[in-house]
Every structure is written in structure tokens, then in C-alpha cells.
Design a protein around this nucleic acid. Sequence first.
DNA 1: AGGTTGTGTCGATACTTGTCGATATAGGTC
DNA 2: GACCTATATCGACAAGTATCGACACAACCT
Lengths: 103, 103
Amino acid sequence: MSCCVLTAPLNIKQSERLAEKLKSLADPVRLRLLSIVATAHTGEVCACDFLGKLEKSQPTISHHPSQLVKAGILSRKQRGKWAWYRLADGLCDVREALGEGCC
Amino acid sequence: MSCCVLTAPLNIKQSERLAEKLKSLADPVRLRLLSIVATAHTGEVCACDFLGKLEKSQPTISHHPSQLVKAGILSRKQRGKWAWYRLADGLCDVREALGEGCC
DNA sequence: AGGTTGTGTCGATACTTGTCGATATAGGTC
DNA sequence: GACCTATATCGACAAGTATCGACACAACCT
């Protein structure tokens, strides 16, 4: 990538791409969801677990992980009738874009 | 802090605080603005410079830096009739909250 | 096949936010 | 004082989005 906010002014395209990832992270429900997945011992979490841990309706619970998948923060795999989520590279990309390692 | 999304599930308060900072970053105009400030040789930028570099109206240009200041990403200092912006600690906080150094 | 269960999608609604024109404020100059 | 200039604020509108109830679909079980 090598386009981080600390090395050079972002052009419009770069800023829009990064903003989209950040927007997917900038929600309390999705952050809690992300931290649940990121700290799972097995590295992955079944969608059914979210229902018990986040006090939201099922459509809402279904909506948020798909936003994170679309942004590349999580990845989704269907196993039988269960959906399993695990971390993707998107989070590292965001940290790098925000200047990880330059501070 | 020691509350990063990779070490333990966030509680509601933590997720709301982090989401607020991320929301302030999740906008293309503000990201370009941030990168302009972050890459300035002197470490600070006059608000008047934004008007030439971001194609937005003056009220909009004024709105965005104040959002970043409120979130602790930038700091603002008035010198005469000019407003000068420089980086604050908020950006490092965000990177740490996203798991900098744990990946 | 029929029933159950997990999960995504649709439609509606309420809330938030980015944007701009108009106006206000505050510092500088004459 | 009167004027100009740099920023912030206000009011309004448009666009986006978080949420939910209702429904659809697909995988399992008997």
C-alpha cells in the first residue's frame, strides 16, 4: 500500500477507500462484534453467538457482520446452517493507513 | 488504556468511545485534511490553506477540523485571526485500540 | 415430504450527518 | 470609530444508515 496519512496527503480516491473501511468500524455494535471475533480462542465465532451477547434483534445482528465483511474486516464461511466469522486483513490495512509504525 | 479489540471483548462504554473517534475519521474530507496536517513540514497548518486544497465551501471547511478537534485527533490554536491545526494524541489512541503491536 | 431452525433480505421509519447560503464574531488595519 | 478578512455558527435540506417486524431461503431432522 504505502499510502498512509503520515507520509503524504491523500488524494480523493485514497481518502474515499479508507473512509469506507473506517465507516464500517465506526459503530459500537460492530466494534463489539469485531472484538468478540478477534478474541475468540478458536479464531472464529458462529453468528448465533452474537444474538446472546449483543442485545439487538436478529436482523440487526445479521446486518452488522455483513458490513464488516464487505469492508474486508471480517471473512464469512458457511458451515451447514451456521455462519462463521473470522478476522480478515482489513484491520491491519486500516492500522497501516493510519500510520502504524511511523509514530 | 490497554483496551484493544484484540485482547478482550469491548463493553458498551468502550465501544461507544472508540466508535466516536472512528466516526470522526470516517470521512474522506477529514482524512485528506488530517493527512495534510500530518505531513506538514512545520507540523501545523493554517485553516486558510484547506480552502485551496479541498474543494468545499468555507462553512464545510470550518466544520470538519472542529470535528477532529472534538475527537482529540487534532488540536487547534488561534494565532491572531488565523487558526492553526496540528496532530494530537487521538490518532495513536485509535491505532492502539485497533490492536497496534499485537498483529 | 413436512416441520424446525439459523440467517439473510425487504420495506418502513426515525435519526444522523454532510453540505451550503446567510449571518455572526473577532482580530487586524486604516 | 469604520472597514476588511478569517472563522465559526445557524438553519435548512438531502443523503445515508441503524433499527425493527415480516418474510424468504436453505439446511438439517424425523
